[in-house]
């Protein structure tokens, strides 16, 4: 019973870790560069969750001040993650721009074929 309670109290963290290792798996296992970038952004999103989960207080409210509420969730992780999301899409675009250039130079976005065409990368 105690194990079940621990599981319920940490369910958010477990799903966060699942998303994280899924992103890691996609980055390592898939050869398509765009899919790798999607995996990387999955990993990044799981980090948002990792920050936002501890910030929540059950029974609290969003950190917008009002006379009738006393308990607020922690605003600091929200600030950090808000900027991280916009920076995340900017860096994702930078990665995609590199993929477009790779496609133009090698004619493919599959990692194996790029290695085959580029003997120095072996």
């Amino acid at each position: 019973m105690e194990m079940l309670e621990t599981f319920a109290a940490h369910y958010n963290y477990f799903i966060t870790i699942f998303l994280m290792i899924s992103g890691l798996f996609i980055v390592i296992a898939r050869g398509n560069l765009i899919k790798k970038l999607v995996g990387l952004s999955l990993f990044q999103t799981s980090v948002y969750l990792l920050y936002l989960t501890p910030a929540k207080i059950l029974g609290g409210t969003a950190p917008i001040y009002d006379e009738s509420y006393k308990l607020y969730s922690n605003p600091l992780p929200h600030v950090l993650m808000l900027t991280a999301i916009v920076v995340g899409v900017a860096t994702l675009s930078l990665g995609l721009a590199l993929v477009v250039r790779i496609k133009e130079a090698y004619g493919t976005v599959e990692e194996d074929e790029i290695f085959a065409k580029d003997p120095e990368a072996e």
């Binding site: 765009i34 999607v38 952004s41 999103t45 948002y48 936002l52 989960t53 910030a55 929540k56 207080i57 609290g60 409210t61 969003a62 950190p63 917008i64 607020y72 969730s73 992780p77 929200h78 993650m81 808000l82 999301i85 916009v86 995340g88 899409v89 994702l92 675009s93 995609l96 993929v99 477009v100």
Partner: peptide, 26 residues
Amino acid sequence: LDAVDVAMTEASVGAGISTVILLTTL
């Protein structure tokens, strides 16, 4: 999770802009 500002950013950035950029790359 009470992160309303972050939710707004994620909805407009993650589902909007990054989808458009990914589709143009495709």
